[in-house]
Design a binder for these strands. Structure first.
Length: 487
RNA sequence: GGCGCUGUCAUCUAACGGUUAGGAUACCGCCCUCUCAAGGCGGGUAUACGGGUUCGAUUCCCGUCAGCGCUACCA
């Protein structure tokens, strides 16, 4: 290929942005960026009845979070003249005809006798004189493509992913180009715009593979060569069916991942691994690495299961484990400053008062302990809370120890902590020395202190934690723990 | 019903017809260690089934089965 590719993502605003659409957007974007081409966003909004502003908002909201951007933007509803012009040019060539049959309601004909489903019998045979007369009389009609019916005719194209595709023309119905209200159908509008916008590659879901034969017919009738097609294997739910919010709930919506604390780069990384592979063993990849590695050849042909659980026991449990793992990997790869800046608003909007400076000191202590950004609320709660949440005094008992040992440890710890310099090394040395003095193991010394200051047994490393918490808070919490035992 | 696409561990995937069928996640175990993580090491699980072609099929062909998609004046 000599010229730069022009690709498009063309969602129809009839629902929220789900993962499958997001992946299609990403693959188009990667292809464009990899080849230095142009990424186009086009709203395929010709179905006036089903389009909603809420859906448009949802799509932009999702795409904005992905933060990839695009180069050109169009709206089909503003290009209707072009669509109609092309439809009528096809009619002028004798490749389309008026169908005065009233629109079918429902799918009652599906199981009808073979052959009749292809088109409305008789409609395409109406003479042009009669057709003109009825149209002039104001009778409503749909404009249908006249699919060639001569024996042996076939339509073919070469898909970059699925290879050579051939279909007998007799298996293609006379599909509509214009509805009886004059609005273009998806097939017509899409091809008309793809031609006009000089789209070079159509990268879209495999659910359009069968439709592509119709599109090839339109492209050729409109007098142009079809673009290169590349169909993507579908993303399916664990039950094997196509992703749907109605069936599978909000786990399939892009904004759910955003709100749960996924990093856009991790989410993108995860989506790329569904149906595409760099062919080496890499999985954890940055956007740049993905861009460099992306190619149509790496796309495979079988549907991929997004392994989510809905409903799930825990918030993180509902997502595909690999997505969560990748997110944790991306979190750990982030510079502390950036991670801290992303954590701060989450903590603040949960109602805690915290300064950016303090957050920056806490972040290194938890970044290997959170998988989703929102985990900061449970992993670092004791740093934010004015008053520690209540805990069972039994938690203070060290391994192989008893309540008396806990009290002994806490009493001495209070004295030590009242005087030691609040830095990692002095804390380490003096607390270990205190353990030796009491004749307990280091772990038995640390555990009661940890529970006293964190309110639980599992927490970040002790000395760093004490350092960030500061003497005043630590002493207060240690004394409170001692009192809890004494009562 | 018709047409089409697809079928490798639980899941995502790798393997110019010749590999002990590889990697990752998840799970389990060990190590490290002040707890939890992170990290290191190790473990089990797969070519849907049946026929061909071939010296040799995960790989090519046919059939069966299964899943999915399309079959609208939806996209």
């Amino acid at each position: 290929m000599t010229s730069k590719p022009r690709v498009r993502f063309a969602p129809s605003p009839t629902g929220f942005l789900h993962m499958g659409s997001a992946r299609t957007f990403i693959f188009n974007w990667l292809y464009a960026r990899h080849h230095g081409g142009t990424m186009i966003l086009r709203l395929d909004d010709t179905d006036v009845g089903r389009n909603t502003q809420a859906s448009v908002d949802s799509i932009f909201e999702g795409l904005k979070w992905l933060n990839l951007g695009w180069d050109e933007e169009y709206k089909q509803s503003e290009r209707l003249d072009l669509h109609r012009k092309i439809a009528w040019s096809i009619f002028e060539k004798g490749l389309a005809y008026r169908d005065f049959t009233p629109a079918h309601t429902g799918d009652a004909e599906k199981s009808g006798a073979q052959g009749t489903w292809l088109f409305n019998p008789g409609a395409r045979e109406v003479s042009s004189a009669e057709s003109d007369r009825r149209a002039a009389a104001g009778e409503p009609f749909a404009l249908r493509f006249r699919v060639p019916r001569e024996a042996g005719q076939s339509v073919r194209f070469n898909d970059a992913v699925y290879g050579e595709q051939i279909k007998a023309a007799n298996d293609i119905e006379d599909f509509a180009l214009l509805r009886s209200d004059g609005m273009p159908t998806y097939h017509l509008a899409s091809c008309a715009d793809d031609t006009d916008l000089k789209i070079s590659h159509i990268i879209r879901g495999q659910d359009h593979l069968s439709n592509t034969f119709k599109h090839v017919l339109i492209f050729e009738a409109a007098g142009g060569a079809p673009p290169q097609f590349a169909h993507l294997p579908l993303l399916v739910a664990p039950d094997g069916t196509k992703l749907s919010k109605r069936r599978h709930g909000p786990v399939v919506s892009v904004t759910t991942y955003r709100d749960a604390g996924f990093l856009p780069a991790a989410f993108i990384n995860f989506l790329c691994l569904l149906g595409w592979s760099p062919k080496d063993d890499r999985e954890n990849m940055s956007l740049q690495e993905l861009t460099d590695a992306f190619s149509l050849e790496g796309i495979n042909r079988s549907n991929a299961v997004v392994n989510f659980k809905e409903p799930a026991a825990t918030p993180e449990d509902r997502f595909d484990p690999k997505a969560v793992w990748l997110n944790a990997e991306h979190i750990r790869a982030l510079p502390i400053e950036e991670l801290s800046a992303r954590l701060l608003p989450i903590v603040q909007s949960a109602g805690f008062k915290i300064t950016p400076e303090k957050m920056l000191r806490i972040t290194p202590l938890i970044r290997e302990r959170i998988k989703l950004l929102r985990d900061v609320l449970t992993a670092a709660d004791f740093f934010f809370a004015e008053k520690l949440a209540a805990y069972d005094s039994a938690e203070l008992i060290p391994q192989k120890g008893d309540m008396a040992m806990a009290l002994k440890v806490l009493s001495l710890a209070r004295d030590v902590l009242a005087n030691v310099e609040f830095k990692h090394d002095p804390l380490d040395q003096s607390l270990r020395a205190a353990a030796a003095e009491l004749g307990v193991k280091a772990g038995q010394m640390f555990q009661p202190i940890r529970v006293a200051v964190c309110g639980r047994k599992n927490a970040p490393p002790l000395f760093e934690t004490l350092e960030v918490l500061g003497r005043e808070t630590v002493l207060e919490r240690v004394e409170r723990a001692a009192r809890l035992i004494s009562q």
